[in-house]
Design a binder for these strands. Structure first.
Lengths: 206, 206, 206, 206
DNA sequence: GATGAATGAGTTTTCATTCAT
DNA sequence: GATGAATGAAAACTCATTCAT
């Protein structure tokens, strides 16, 4: 959001201010639409209105550019979720989880391309890039570890698997969600949490 | 499974038998490990022990080869799930869903590369390839539509979202599952279903 | 003509008789439509209803196949012109030239693809193929040398250039002639000869 | 001419100046010597002293490169003929036609490879390239339409066929002309026009 | 005769990257 | 900062030809 706004402001101002930010924005769009491999540096340069060689003034290479996009994506989701939790500091654990999920999914499905990239453009496993990005993502997911651990779940519930199931269901929605659908991202998130809540916190069945 | 076995048998026999099947197997491995774009026809040919040009005797092009791999994957998962359901024809709906999920996840996480490709190597959206593969997958997912519709879910439950949540959680596990983990695919599947079950069916525990 | 008829007869008879002739026919079509380089042996095989490898039972290679097509074309034009001249043995030289030109142009523009290939698909100069084909064509063009030499042209007329001008004008028509045009090949030929005749044989101007 | 001179000057100067022009020159040579299909981008790059990939900085592809060569050829012939006509504005129609033909044939037979390509390297009919080039050529040939229409030809003479005959005879000479021949291009042109003139214009000799 | 498989050399084209200007 | 030129490596794919069956 921030990045995109900055870029748009610059462009509108005919400004030379933050070319780097503008590059990031179009790169995010393209990576998101076509994937990492299928997006060429030339494509990005063209969309950014500069020449391919100029990209290397801002980023060491394609990997670095992608990493920057990814990092921006993680920051964006992170900020959205933290913001939501900030505003609900005193609510009960389920409500907090629900709000976090709503923010998470809104960022993924209705936010900028930066957020989508994080979930949709998986770095090739095993690469150096992969390790770097994984670290970023893990930092973010720690939030959900805390949120889930705070839930009054039945004993013997596997908290880790609960978290992975929840995030998996949410993240997977990027493969089927269509913006014109009849459910807004927030509602989807609320309902998914609802599916996993039910009798969970009454300690009933395992 | 069949394909891989056939190919290995042939190779072991020093046989000339089914080169096409052997190509499919290594292609599945590579597509799975690196993704579609990052896997070159040369890589596949090299791994298959033939020259790159020879691939075009068996497959019209890279797209066609990928489609064949994908189709084999869908068939494999489909067969596994249908087999499991066949053997449990008289069981209650939740049990049937659980068995289907176990078979689904076992195929994805412990099966051949064909199965994994279906979930992990998403074709670029909008391509002709994408449409073709989507059709194949949709056919398979119809099974789960039936299984979910058969559940005694609380009224006003969104069946579609229930199904998408379940499959999302299962499919997403391909991004975090490690074979050396302490949970077998079947157990993971059982527990995920458990998380979604709980009091869903009017509070009764299985 | 002969070749094509033979091939059609064979095909109609479901016959296995003269596969070679059938290959020649489709090769002529393709060479004519696309040129030598742009026509692949596979294309030819496909159009002939056989597999590419089988072509090599009939022809030593692509060059040989083309040479055979070309030779058939030369023979065809040759036969047409000789036939016309045969039937006009006693006519005056201009009439004989006119009839020859009519036959020549009819073969090129309204005959089989064999004839067109001779004029439209020039072999790459300098190749062995080129030399071979040039010989064939030269044999044929000798006819026109005789016909032109028999004309009562004004003294000091360059007979060779007259012949080259005439044949050039005729042959070049393959680049602009459209079958739906308002002039039939024979009429075109007659008129071209007419343009070159005029006062020629009155000994007037040079 | 201009292009070639520029390129040669650059090369002689060891200059870095106009690589694009140099590429055009060698491309014209090769297209002319071998034809479109038989000339590879590698061949051109090699002859131009650059790597194959570098060609794509100057031309979008092989088609575009050929089109550029062809356009240069048309321009060249066009300029030569217009120049000749310019210098003979007040001459009689037959003389003007003769001068145009001389310029045309000199360009084809003794000019650069650009000019020859126009007549000798026919694009495959039906392709997009074909249509583009045909338009270029048609523009040029309009000159001859005017020149022929200005002739005092006998009534009922088909002007179009007269023009096609003339140009056909001239253009076809590229298939038999050898530079060491005893007739210079201009003389050939003059004589061809002479053959078509004769008593055409009401029996008067020039 | 016929063919399916295979190949080696080739095709056009793309791409991330470098660097002198 | 910016770029035009250049490159080396690689991409997908084609092709004429061979040969065991």
């Amino acid at each position: 959001m921030t990045l995109q706004h900055a870029a748009q402001r610059d462009a509108a101002a005919g400004g030379r201010v933050n070319r780097r930010a503008a590059v990031l924005v179009v790169a995010a769009q393209l990576f998101n639409a076509r994937g990492y491999e299928a997006t060429s540096m030339r494509d990005i340069a063209l969309a950014a209105g500069i020449k391919a060689g100029s990209l290397y003034h801002f980023f060491a290479g394609k990997d670095a550019l992608f990493a920057a996009v990814y990092a921006a994506g993680v920051r964006e989701i992170h900020a959205a979720v933290e913001g939501a939790l900030e505003a609900a500091r005193r609510r009960d654990p389920w409500k907090r989880l629900q709000l976090a999920c709503e923010a998470h999914l809104a960022a993924l499905l209705a936010g900028t391309d930066f957020a989508s990239v994080v979930v949709r453009t998986l770095p090739r496993p095993g690469t150096r890039l992969d390790a770097a990005l994984r670290a970023q993502r893990d930092g973010y997911e720690a939030i959900f570890r805390e949120l889930v651990d705070a839930l009054p779940l039945a004993p013997r519930t596997d908290h880790q698997l609960f978290r992975l199931t929840l995030l998996g269901a949410l993240n997977w929605s990027t493969t089927w969600y269509r913006p014109d659908g009849r459910r807004a991202p927030q509602e989807i998130a609320r309902r998914v949490v609802g599916l996993l809540r039910s009798a969970r916190d009454k300690g009933a069945c395992e």
